[in-house]
């Protein structure tokens, strides 16, 4: 039984050693922040590891061949499991607080699905194929990454869509959320408390950025805004995976199957280069 592990180690030692070196190097670089005037861009070690790893792949520097690249894909799923375990423990530890949150907080979780209706049509118009399903069914934070990779496999176009939005979101998420919060607040259509709840839709750092901005705009609510944002963030952490499994993905796939034949045809007429889709191999 150990022989299959041993065999894998012997055949793909370069992948495991490479990932170890990449991870250690990226962790030594640490979290890098750029001040770009309107806010801060954040680069996590994970982003460095992904980009450098990608550069060494068969497309560019060729340190890893196609088979090794595939073996790394299998390890992505293995790595996701402890990550999901950590999120699960976090959800369980906060379960008692669920009782304290009101109906508005619970229901606004369904608002998270609204992105599908807005982003999927545009993604299709931009020429994305099945990547659009992974990219558009949720805000693509950590638990969604686990879900898509698990359901479609690490090499599927759907997973690439989720992964791309996850990575881009981790870099621009904080700066964009604080920008977005101040723009939407200036419309004066939503109650400050509703905006506070909405600031918890993404990652913890996105929530902090958005709630901070909102607290500065609405000093009267400055104390309660981070509390609601935090509760909403925690709630998304608990409900996200079930929302995605039972509503988000089925709904997105259904809409994709409805829209893609029409939009895809228009797009195919405009550009010959349809190779940009997921079926590259």
């Amino acid at each position: 039984m150990e022989s299959s592990i041993k065999g894998r180690l012997l055949r793909y030692w370069k992948v495991y050693a490479g990932a170890l070196v990449l991870a250690v190097l990226s962790d030594m670089i640490g979290i890098v922040k750029f001040d770009i005037g309107i806010g801060t861009l954040t680069l996590f070690p994970m982003v460095f590891a992904t980009i450098i790893g990608g550069l060494f792949g068969p497309d560019l520097l060729r340190l890893f061949d196609m088979k090794e690249s595939g073996a790394a894909g299998a390890m992505v799923l293995v790595c996701l499991a402890p990550f999901m375990a950590k999120m699960g423990v976090g959800a369980g530890a906060n379960l008692a607080r669920l009782v304290e949150v009101g109906p508005a907080l619970l229901l606004q979780e369904f608002g998270n699905l609204g992105t599908i209706l807005i982003s999927l049509p545009v993604a299709l118009l931009l020429g994305l194929k099945k990547e659009a399903i992974g990219a558009c069914y949720s805000i693509n934070r950590d638990s969604n990454l686990g879900l898509t990779t698990d359901i479609y496999g690490p090499d599927a176009p759907e997973t690439k869509g989720t992964f791309a939005v996850y990575i881009v979101g981790s870099v621009i998420g904080t700066v964009f959320m604080s920008l977005l919060a101040s723009i939407v607040a200036s419309w004066n259509v939503f109650h400050p408390l509703a905006l506070a709840m909405a600031s918890g839709v993404g990652s913890g750092s996105m929530m902090t950025a958005a709630a901070g901005t909102l607290a500065a705009i609405y000093p009267d609510y400055a104390e309660v805004i981070p509390v609601l944002g935090g509760a909403s963030d925690m709630l998304t952490g608990i409900t996200g995976i079930y929302m995605g499994t039972f509503i988000g993905l089925p709904l997105t796939t259904w809409l994709y199957n409805k829209l893609e034949p029409t939009v895809g045809r228009i797009f195919a007429r405009n550009t010959i280069n349809s190779n940009a889709g997921g079926e590259a191999e």
Binding site: A19, A23, P45, G54, M75, L80, P154
Partner: peptide, 13 residues
């Protein structure tokens, strides 16, 4: 980070 490293090598193609 480990996830990113493996994902990077995997996405290398």
């Amino acid at each position: 980070t480990a996830l990113g490293a493996f994902a990077g090598i995997s996405l290398g193609k």
